[in-house]
Design a protein around this nucleic acid. Sequence first.
DNA 1: CATGAATGAGCCTTCATTCAT
DNA 2: TATGAATGAAGGCTCATTCAT
Lengths: 243, 243, 243, 243
Amino acid sequence: MSTTARREREVRQREQLIVTAARRLLLEHGFAGINMDVVAEAVDYSKGLLYKHFASKEDLLAAVSLDNHEKRTELFDRAAMFAGSTRERMTAIGVADETLALVYPEFQRTEQLLHVPSILEKCTPERRTRLMGVTSVCMNCVQGVARDAVATGDLVLPEGQTTAGIVFGLWTIALGAHTLHQSGKPLEMLGISNALAAMRDNQQKLLDGYDWKPLSSEHDYGAVRERVRQEVFAHEYGTRARS
Amino acid sequence: MSTTARREREVRQREQLIVTAARRLLLEHGFAGINMDVVAEAVDYSKGLLYKHFASKEDLLAAVSLDNHEKRTELFDRAAMFAGSTRERMTAIGVADETLALVYPEFQRTEQLLHVPSILEKCTPERRTRLMGVTSVCMNCVQGVARDAVATGDLVLPEGQTTAGIVFGLWTIALGAHTLHQSGKPLEMLGISNALAAMRDNQQKLLDGYDWKPLSSEHDYGAVRERVRQEVFAHEYGTRARS
Amino acid sequence: MSTTARREREVRQREQLIVTAARRLLLEHGFAGINMDVVAEAVDYSKGLLYKHFASKEDLLAAVSLDNHEKRTELFDRAAMFAGSTRERMTAIGVADETLALVYPEFQRTEQLLHVPSILEKCTPERRTRLMGVTSVCMNCVQGVARDAVATGDLVLPEGQTTAGIVFGLWTIALGAHTLHQSGKPLEMLGISNALAAMRDNQQKLLDGYDWKPLSSEHDYGAVRERVRQEVFAHEYGTRARS
Amino acid sequence: MSTTARREREVRQREQLIVTAARRLLLEHGFAGINMDVVAEAVDYSKGLLYKHFASKEDLLAAVSLDNHEKRTELFDRAAMFAGSTRERMTAIGVADETLALVYPEFQRTEQLLHVPSILEKCTPERRTRLMGVTSVCMNCVQGVARDAVATGDLVLPEGQTTAGIVFGLWTIALGAHTLHQSGKPLEMLGISNALAAMRDNQQKLLDGYDWKPLSSEHDYGAVRERVRQEVFAHEYGTRARS
DNA sequence: CATGAATGAGCCTTCATTCAT
DNA sequence: TATGAATGAAGGCTCATTCAT
């Protein structure tokens, strides 16, 4: 019947509820401060019920990570479709990344806490598979833009270079920057007042290094970023408070 | 008198022994697989003695992290003094980073495992202070080279840019690459066969983006790297097996 | 009217279905491996329905035990009616016991698992009563043959001996042998290659000890056993694979 | 030093204390009613300490079983050395078994509760080995007497029979009788007023069936039993109340 | 009648830390 | 000073039973 379908929907909704609560707790109390008791209390369900939805603590955390990735993928996908030059589209993806960090900080920040081998090891095989696949989905999105750039001639790959290499460079800058951003390290003392801005600038410089046209010296990517925010992520910046 | 000094020296030696053992265990069994019992057994001292040296488990792990940083600082310092152009010296620091990852992988790899807030929170205030300071020591080393580049004119900072920004860029690439490298993510599937090489290339491209002369297209930095290995890190590559 | 009767019959059928499934699960996964969830799943009914039929988990297990006894009683009854001397009839009952172990091993083997006090304690009083009674039904069957032997003069009871004592002896040999048989103890190492054969031989020796005529040295009870298998238990050995 | 030896002795003493307490709890509350919390409370030590001595709950229970076997082995050994004919010595072993059941009922009765596969599966490999070995020690003791009987000519093995078969017969009668004895089954209703006496009689009848000389009709084994009690087990019957 | 979601007490096990010797 | 026995709080997970639908 439709009863089954409704049940199924309710189950999904509750799993989402649990995942969201777990993410919040993760953000507030860190990896060590989370356990099934506090999650159960937070969602006001019994511990036993949690285990009906998630096979283990690690499985639940894997689900949080998966959800993080899905949100990221959604934003990246929308950014990649921005109407503009290939480098503008890549810039748009940068805005997507930044938007995630600003508007959904818990998605970005909890992700760092979840890079623990035990999670992959102990979660459901099915979720592990999805988790490993979801990363490439996101990468493919970025790499697609790079390939377009090569196709259009905006980007000329030097010998021995691949689009994967460029993607890797952008990715590592983002990953490292986010890690530092929330490491609690006093970046100001090192002369970095705004980690996200520094991340952005370096990504542009990296693309300049690859000679991806038009260069940042030839084009106002700051204006592009502003347009992307308004045209692509209006909803995000409108509905949720910018931190 | 000198008895006190000898005592002090022995204490330091033993702390070093414990730190080294803890790092090895961390590498072999992961963060979750380490506890005070196995550390005590590994060093063949009692658990009580461990607490004479380290206020808590977290304090011990903080000491491991501190030791990691000190090894890194040592290598970076030597690299920064390489005789060559500013960009060659910066390249040398890249080699130092790479050397750490290759020759002392446990220093590099355990460091990732130690980025948990609880460590900073629960370790001795004194060690926390040192831990926060040690990062800047390492950064200053890198930033010093960048400042030299500005001073010599090899590098012209665009308006609104700082040397800190460049350091941040290099740092995040390294941090992100090392994180990915040991995350277990299937990078090959994304087209990255050698994460360290990709890291290196992107760092050079970034410096190209900053127009730090001489550009990688004008100079053979591969040869520079080889020279640094032989001249600065001969000892490291000679005595320990290169993986 | 007949609707009520039909209802009643359906209820019994379903209870039988549940009992059979529970016994199979008990055999496959042991006492610790059985719970109401897996039973419900196995019979494809809801857990709630299980509780409509059985007051508790223990009550269900008691029902399994009861069913085991009923199967045993059925076989014993048929064996006791074998046409032959009293000792041949007793031998026939031995074949019945053996048949149960060979052809319906789950009835025999699960019974051992159910000798836990909690079952008797927590099952329905009504089922407890039946459970305590069913043993004597089976015993009476055996004891009846012994009484016939005394009546016919095949067996002369020494002073102070009762037929109950003989029954007890045969019973304990069977019970102990079945227990050892499935205890996983390495009987081969002790020189016992076939526990059932050893059980049989000892039961015959015991009857010899009681001087129950004709003695095993005077009569071929091996041939009797073969006849019983063919004449009384043809159905059992034909339809179910002999293990 | 002797300090180490003393420590070792104290450890053994405490393990014995824990084992004894566990056995008592097992007897009082059954298998299901025992858990590490109540054991810890009973011995007035912390739960953590129990795990210093025993690797798991099952390991502790295996130790109880081992201790049961050791007590039995001790009594059997002493009985087997009784000065008399081979059949008298076998009778003495019967007295040992009976003595265990009467004077140390908890050793006998708990043993039945410990025949659970999970115990063998989850206990320390070392203890598992000892546990499997200890059974044969006890058997060898019994079988030794049977072999002596064959050697002296008191017992003539029929073709195809082995001493192991006789041992098996005696063993199963004892095992079955003890099982029934404590099953709570109303044996009186079946005409058995004293299960131990019935066990004894049947074992003698079994030996008669094997024609082990001198037969029970030719010799007063009741008197032998009385002598064994006084000469071999005076200590047991003197110090502990006979139940 | 039938369902299966929900409960929550209970249990095993781990481990950081302390302290008497 | 060095030890390691002892602690006990904490946490992951199970499962018999109930009850609203």
